[in-house]
Computed example of a mutant assay.
Amino acid sequence: MATITLKGNKVHTTGSLPATGSKAPDFELTKTDLSHASLSDYSGKKTVLNVFPSIDTGTCAQSVRQFNEKAAKLDNTAVLCISKDLPFAQARFCGAEGIENVEMLSDFRDGNFGKAYNLEFSDGPLQSLLSRVVVVINENQEIVYTEQVPEIVDEPDYKAALEAITNA
C-alpha cells in the first residue's frame, strides 16, 4: 500500500505500483465513444499512462493539457489519460479545451485498471478513485518509469516522464 497525502492528510492506495522493468499489467478501459481499449491496442508504441482522480479538478485538467502539448508530439507514442470519470465528461472536457493529442480512457465500469496497477484510493475522501500516477511503458510493454505523486494536489514531474519516454 502506498501512503500519499491529500492537502497534507494521509491517504492510502490499494497497493504499490508495478515495478520498473516488469511487464505492464493488461487492462480494459472505456473510450469516450464507449468502445473498449486494452493495453494490447498500443503494442509496439511507447505508452504514457497519465492517471488522475477526476478531470473536473484543476490539477487533473492541467496534467491533461500538459501531456497534450508535450508528450503527444513525440513519435510512436500514445498518451492515455485515465480516470474514473464518465466518458461523457471526458469528451466534454476535451471538446471544450481543444484536446486532440491524447486519448481519454475511463475505468468507471469495473475498476480493473486501478486494481491491476494498485493505484486506487483505499480510504479518505477520494476512496475508490484513482491516485495521481504517471507510468511510462516501452514498445515491448515493459514499465520503464513510474511516479506516484506524493501530494495528490501537485502535478506530476513532466520533465522526468518525458525523459523516460525519450529513453524508452
Score class of each variant (00 low, 15 high):
residue 55 I to H: 07
residue 78 A to Q: 09
residue 52 F to N: 13
residue 97 E to A: 08
residue 83 S to E: 07
residue 80 L to E: 08
residue 49 L to S: 06
residue 79 V to R: 08
residue 106 S to T: 03
residue 48 V to W: 02
residue 81 C to L: 12
residue 55 I to A: 03
residue 100 E to R: 14
residue 91 A to T: 01
residue 108 F to C: 15
residue 58 G to H: 06
residue 83 S to V: 08
residue 92 R to H: 11
residue 71 A to S: 14
residue 100 E to A: 04
residue 66 Q to L: 15
residue 86 L to S: 14
residue 76 N to K: 13
residue 73 K to Y: 12
residue 34 L to K: 14
residue 80 L to R: 02
residue 92 R to N: 01
residue 105 L to S: 02
residue 73 K to R: 14
residue 96 A to I: 13
residue 53 P to Q: 06
residue 53 P to G: 09
residue 68 N to R: 06
residue 45 K to E: 14
residue 56 D to W: 12
residue 105 L to V: 07
residue 43 S to Y: 12
residue 102 V to F: 10
residue 49 L to M: 09
residue 44 G to C: 01
residue 73 K to N: 15
residue 108 F to W: 11
residue 40 S to N: 10
residue 38 S to Y: 15
residue 41 D to R: 09
residue 77 T to S: 00
residue 84 K to E: 04
residue 40 S to T: 03
residue 75 D to A: 11
residue 75 D to L: 09
residue 60 C to M: 01
residue 67 F to Q: 04
residue 92 R to M: 00
residue 69 E to L: 09
residue 87 P to Y: 01
residue 82 I to A: 03
residue 84 K to G: 08
residue 71 A to T: 12
residue 34 L to S: 11
residue 54 S to N: 00
residue 78 A to V: 05
residue 82 I to Y: 04
residue 60 C to L: 09
residue 41 D to S: 13
residue 51 V to E: 00
residue 82 I to N: 05
residue 95 G to H: 06
